[in-house]
């Protein structure tokens, strides 16, 4: 357990532990003295929370940011890690891929807006960033956003996502019956319905090699992962 005095002077832990797809990522504080950093590392791995590091082989990445180490200091840290035999050091450096992937996972889009109410025929609200509509987008209405568009209601009008040219923008709706969809500069028209019942499951539209694709919302997660990999 941390003693209360240290807790008061230093609210942020010296070592941040993050879970990533490739294993654990240790973010070392850049400014704190080497002694306390090493002490914390040792406590982390062998102390109270050591169960985190137990079990089969565990890949770890260590990111030390702007900190400059002496050669002896590096050896001390590696020795400390080596005391646990199941730890495999995957990455060691100032800006590891593991850390970068952490920041990429939240898209760096602008603001997000919540729009409550119905977007009616003839209206054309424009948003910077993502927009969530709590209501319907009626036929004859057009909703425009530079990011994603989510409609928690019926999408029956026109939706234009990523209008400033963001190809990774998506359009999702609880009831997906749009008149027209636009993502960046690609336009897609709703298929002729001729009397068929409305599709009432959640769907989303995205761009796939210059053309628009529509998929069930369950696939959104898989798609996001794929899109991130390719970008």
């Amino acid at each position: 357990m941390l003693d209360s005095e240290r807790l008061a002077t230093d609210s942020k832990p010296n070592i941040l532990l993050k879970g990533t797809k490739e294993g654990l990522l240790l973010l070392l504080n850049e400014v704190v003295s080497f002694e306390s950093l090493l002490e914390d590392l040792s406590t982390l791995i062998h102390g109270e929370k050591k169960s985190l590091f137990e079990g089969p082989d565990l890949k770890i990445s260590v990111d030390y940011g702007e900190r400059v180490f002496a050669a002896s200091e590096i050896r001390e840290i590696l020795d400390c890690l080596a005391k646990r035999e199941n730890l495999i050091l995957r990455e060691w450096g100032p800006s590891t891929a593991a850390k970068l992937s952490l920041f990429n996972s939240s898209r760096k889009f602008g603001p997000q807006t919540l729009l409550k109410g119905t977007v009616r025929a003839g209206q054309r609200p424009v948003f910077e960033g993502d927009v969530v509509v709590i209501g319907d987008v009626n036929p004859g209405a057009e909703i425009v956003a530079s990011g994603d568009i989510y409609v928690l209601g019926r999408l029956r009008g026109i939706a234009h996502a990523g209008f400033l040219g963001d190809w990774s923008a998506i359009i999702a709706a609880a009831e997906f019956a749009p008149m027209q969809l636009r993502i960046a500069d690609i336009v897609s028209r709703a298929p002729e319905r001729d009397g068929k019942p409305l599709r009432t499951f959640m769907e989303f539209a995205y761009l796939k090699e210059d053309s628009m694709a529509v998929d069930k919302l369950d696939s959104l997660h898989a798609w996001t992962a794929m899109a991130r990999q390719s970008s």
């Binding site: 009616r120 025929a121 003839g122 209206q123 009626n138 036929p139 004859g140 209405a141």
Partner: peptide, 10 residues
């Protein structure tokens, strides 16, 4: 209905 929707907005 479309025009009514427009008018409600106005």
């Amino acid at each position: 209905v479309r025009d009514a929707d427009r008018v409600i907005g106005l």
